[in-house]
Nucleic acid binder design. Structure first.
Length: 942
RNA sequence: GCCGAAGUGGCGGAAUUGGUAGACGCGCACGACUCAAAAUCGUGUGCCCUCGGGCGUGUGGGUUCGAUUCCCACCUUCGGUACCA
């Protein structure tokens, strides 16, 4: 019987499905293990070979853990709300639900072919009302909670109300009991973990909605690359900043890659420093008096070098600080700043600013220092004001240079030649009581002094902002809130009496059917045109993409529950995710939001762990190899092969084209061609190409000397637009799913990105055939019941040992070579013994589940190989009595000698020095030194 | 600029604690089978060489009997981030 993967894979797919072999239930008798994949957004393009890389790895791990006796939760679902389906709806009128349903169906077909062990009965779809009902429920938990900084955890809002009632806390606007209902609500809104606020947001006109900070890259939208502008709007926010410290602290307790943890740390951006008040000279009192300006600094030690203050152009006191003489200049400057987009600001960093006319007093020296406004100081960070120390800060220095402001050196860095301005090293100078101190010492000393004199206090600042939660879109979870009075989106919250209240009924608040998906154009979502929404004064914005994905891993634990988001007993059993496989692109989005939600649920007692993902693996990307043809701008009818674009053309070619040199073709540009039109040697199939692109029908293709057109190539992201996509369906049709799985792993370490190279796949395909031949040779069953000998058992147990070590460390690529080595060795030993082959079949089952199941059955087993037990490694078969030592002379290997492992160093030395090949180097003289490392190496120093 | 990861044959990559660098696979060369080809199987394959050996893990130094592995400086690539005071 030949290895017929098509028949085998068809057969077992059906059997596994019918028998529900991957269905899992809570089982207190067995230890749990939770292996999770980041669930995909089902896009219309389907999967390419890069997508399943992480799924294959996690599936191998899940299957391995199952064989090891764990009760493994390994689910899959869909992150099904999102912009692409809605954009498509705007363009075509097709309902996003329909687009999404089709895409999911296609994903499922593709996934099924690869032989994953997902428990599909636990599938979730975030756009399913039965699912988002609970997303809304969690939203309301957040809404009905506040962060108690005294207990350092989230608590129900009732405990806050109690504090107000009892007078322990005082609302800003008056006695709690004297406040109107609306004012009480507005007060509570300042504490709720999701809250309504009026603030500057990232508005993307093209997408018609606001974006969270992590969805904006370089001033453009991450999705689509559209321009993003600042706009003040009434929005829901997630009060994630209350969790900044705990989100930082938790990173020390999870097993994630250093780079990913670092990204989260940088995003949160905690910095310790001081808030220092700079008073204004009394002589300079304004109409409305400004007592002083608070600045935030991480370098209070440099305060004696602070020669001016800079405040953000948006700072609330700009008006008050501006003197009459400076009013015009300041007004002009503010107009200029407003005209600058974020993109411009980031691309051309100009040194700009304007003097307000006012002065402040350096609290230590009493010196009057000028106050400037400048765009390099951001309103949103710290206090929006800085003390500028030009001697010790690059930006302040540039500013001082431009405006001719004094520079006072305060740190002597002569002992640290390579140190930059911002480095915290050196000795203090020109700084009165700090003189002579090291920087770190000085920081501590000045902080004490600042607090003693009451001019400021220690302060921790964060870069992280509260996340914007509202999206002015249709295809998302409705926010379950309604208003008693509807406010206007362009009016600050609180000025239009628009207090929101939760919608408890109907539950869930289901997305209505609408006829148009277009945004209203005035910043509101398509729901603002919906009769029911208008009538009930429902919130018309929907939730962001990260809402549904912030808790889906909990829903997998109890996906059908319609009473709770998940039953306590099930959460108690599954707890949290043991290993999470996914891309690093969600470093500061999804992975930060889910951690926050999980911590809130933990504080409120709904989950029993405070970190959702114990271990995280970022699989690399599989890139595509794009192919190009080349064309000159002046002669679009001429196609030049890759090898000729940088060389001279032959005389015949020049004559043919009627030009004098290759330069006459103009600027030569590459054009992507579909990789299916290029053969394995990189030559273009010209006729097929012309069929694909008829506009090139009459083009002249210059050829290489061998008569072919050779294409250029480059490694890029795999994408439809680059025509370099490899579809797993095709690979599986040609080689089978087992081969596809093993090849994806064989490509290299899981975290590494690498291009797809289908040349190498034949190696894995050959291996599977070879492995099969251990069982069937020329269609004849080879397996015998003979007793295995020591050599054969050593091959088996060495392999099992390697597999265990490598799988635990997620080194799946070396597992594959382990199988290859074992197969080669057993092949040359002509070993066909059941006692060796049967354990091998179990151990290969996680990698190649189909062929393993088929051979398991052929070996006469009735059950499923995936419910078997991983074979135990017997160390007794691995014990060696002697070792073949490499003998190095002065560190270079010159000889080899087999020595018993129990030999003494002295005996070893005698043996080694007696070797002819060693005598050649020692000339019979005793060595300077003799090193004997048991089981490793012998080194003779002469 | 800053932070993080990485640099090993023609290619993908291996070397787990400082102990034979290049496992395994691709490719290539030769051979077997075949009328022939494909497929398959076998052998060889880091580079140089005067066949003694020499050189080799981005570059230059260091520690060590011994360094891909540890230390210092630098170069390159990739990822993230950027007026964050």
């Amino acid at each position: 019987m030949e290895y017929d993967f098509r028949r085998i894979e068809e057969k077992w797919k059906k059997v596994w499905d019918e028998k529900e072999v991957y269905k899992v239930t809570e089982d207190s008798a067995r230890p749990k293990y939770y292996v999770l994949d980041m669930f995909p957004y089902p896009s219309g393009a389907g999967l390419h070979v890069g997508h399943p890389l992480g799924y294959v790895a996690s599936d191998i791990y899940a299957r391995y853990k199952r064989l090891k006796g764990y009760n493994v939760l390994h689910p899959m679902g869909y992150d099904a709300f999102g912009l692409p389906a809605e954009q498509y709806a705007i363009e075509t009128g097709t309902h996003p639900a329909e687009t999404t349903r089709k895409a999911i169906q296609r994903y499922r077909e593709q996934l099924d072919k690869i032989g994953f062990s997902f428990d599909w009965s636990r599938q979730v779809k975030t756009c399913d009302p039965a699912y988002y009902k609970w997303t809304q429920w969690i939203f309301l938990q957040l809404y009905n909670s506040w962060y108690n900084r005294e207990t350092d955890r989230a608590e129900p809002i009732d405990s806050l109300i109690q504090k107000f009632k009892s007078g322990q806390l005082q609302p800003e606007i008056g006695e709690w009991s004297s406040l109107s209902e609306a004012d009480q609500q507005r007060t509570l809104m300042k504490y709720r973990l999701v809250y309504l606020s009026f603030a500057e947001v990232n508005w993307c006109e093209a997408l018609g909605c606001v974006l969270a900070n992590d969805e904006v890259k370089d001033g453009k939208s991450e999705r689509g690359g559209y321009p993003v502008e600042k706009r003040k709007m009434r929005q829901w926010f997630l009060r994630i900043t209350e969790y900044s410290d705990r989100l930082l602290e938790g990173l020390n307790r999870v097993d994630w890659s250093e780079s990913l943890k670092e990204q989260q740390r940088n995003w949160i951006g905690r910095s310790e420093g001081a808030l220092i008040k700079f008073r204004l000279p009394t002589a300079h009192s304004q109409e409305e008096r400004v007592e002083g300006i608070d600045v935030f600094t991480t370098r209070p030690d440099t305060i004696f070098g602070a020669t001016f203050l800079v405040i953000a152009p948006e700072h609330e006191w700009v008006k008050k600080l501006t003197t009459t003489e400076q009013q015009k200049a300041i007004a002009n400057y503010i107009t200029y700043v407003k005209s600058r987009t974020d993109v411009e600001r980031q691309q051309e960093k100009k040194v700009t600013g304007e003097f307000t006319g006012s002065y402040a007093l350096n609290p230590f020296t009493g010196t009057e220092i000028p106050i400037y406004i400048a765009e390099y100081v951001l309103a949103g960070y710290g206090t929006g004001a800085i003390m500028a120390v030009p001697a010790d800060d690059e930006r302040d220095h540039r500013f001082a240079e431009k405006f001719g402001l004094p520079v006072i050196d305060v740190i002597d860095r002569s002992m640290h030649p390579g140190a930059a301005m911002e480095d915290k090293v050196g000795k203090m100078i020109n700084s009165h009581f700090l003189n002579g101190m090291e920087v770190k010492e000085a920081i501590a000393a000045v902080l004490n002094e600042i607090e003693k004199r009451g001019i400021g206090q220690r302060k921790v600042n964060y870069k992280q902002r509260d996340a914007i939660y509202s999206r002015q879109r249709y295809w998302g979870e409705p926010i379950p809130m309604h208003y008693k009075v509807v406010g206007k989106p362009d009016l600050p919250f609180g000025e239009s009496n628009d207090v929101p209240y939760p919608v408890f009924d109907p539950s869930p608040l289901e997305l209505p059917v609408v006829s148009s998906f277009k945004p209203t154009g005035d910043g509101r979502s398509p729901l603002a045109n919906n009769e029911e929404w208008v009538k009930n004064h429902y919130e018309t914005d929907t939730m962001p993409g990260y809402a549904g994905s912030s808790w889906y891993f909990l829903r997998y634990m109890d996906p059908q529950n319609d009473k709770e988001f998940a039953a306590k007993s099930k959460i108690d059993y599954w707890q949290n995710v043991d290993v999470y496989f996914g891309g690093a692109e969600h470093a500061v989005g999804h992975l930060l939001y889910s951690r926050m939600w999980h911590k809130v649920l933990f504080d409120l007692g709904y989950v029993n762990t405070d970190e959702p993902f114990k271990k995280l693996v970022n699989q690399g990307m599989i890139q595509g190899v794009s192919r190009f043809i080349y064309r000159g701008s002046a002669r679009p009818d001429v196609i030049i092969p890759f090898n000729k674009i940088e060389s001279e053309l032959t005389g015949d070619e020049l004559k043919l084209l009627g030009i004098n040199s290759i330069d006459d073709l103009g600027l030569i540009c590459p054009i992507h061609v579909d990789i299916s039109l290029v053969d394995e040697h990189g030559n273009l199939k010209i006729d097929e190409f012309k069929k694909w692109r008829p506009e090139y029908g009459n083009a002249v293709f210059l050829l290489n000397a061998d008569g072919h057109y050779h294409c250029g190539s480059s490694v890029e992201k795999m994408s439809k637009s680059k025509y370099n996509v490899v579809n797993p369906d095709e690979v599986i049709a040609k080689y089978g799913a087992d081969c596809f799985r093993m090849f994806e792993m064989f490509l290299g370490p899981i975290e590494q990105s690498k291009p797809w190279d289908d040349k190498g796949i034949s190696g894995v395909s050959n291996f599977l055939k070879k492995f099969w031949r251990l069982f069937y040779e020329q269609g004849v069953w080879q397996v015998t019941e003979e007793t295995a000998n020591a050599v054969e058992l050593k091959v088996l147990h060495k392999t099992l040992q390697k597999l265990e070590d490598d799988i635990e460390r997620l080194n799946f690529n070396t597992c594959i070579s382990g199988f290859m080595i074992a197969t080669n060795e057993l092949n040359s030993l002509a070993c066909h013994k059941r006692s060796v082959l049967e354990p091998l079949v179990i151990s290969i089952a996680p990698f190649a589940p189909f062929v393993a199941e088929e051979l398991w059955e052929k070996l006469g087993n009735s059950g499923c190989v995936h419910h078997a037990a991983f074979p135990k490694v017997e160390p007794k078969y691995l014990i060696e009595s002697s070792h073949k030592y490499p003998v190095s002379i002065n560190g270079k290997v010159r000889a080899e000698i087999e020595l018993p492992l129990d030999i003494t160093p002295q005996e070893a030395e005698n043996e080694v020095l007696g070797l002819d090949s060693v005598k050649k180097w020692t000339n019979g003289n005793p060595p300077k030194k003799f090193i004997y490392v048991k089981g490793r190496i012998v080194n003779v120093v002469v």
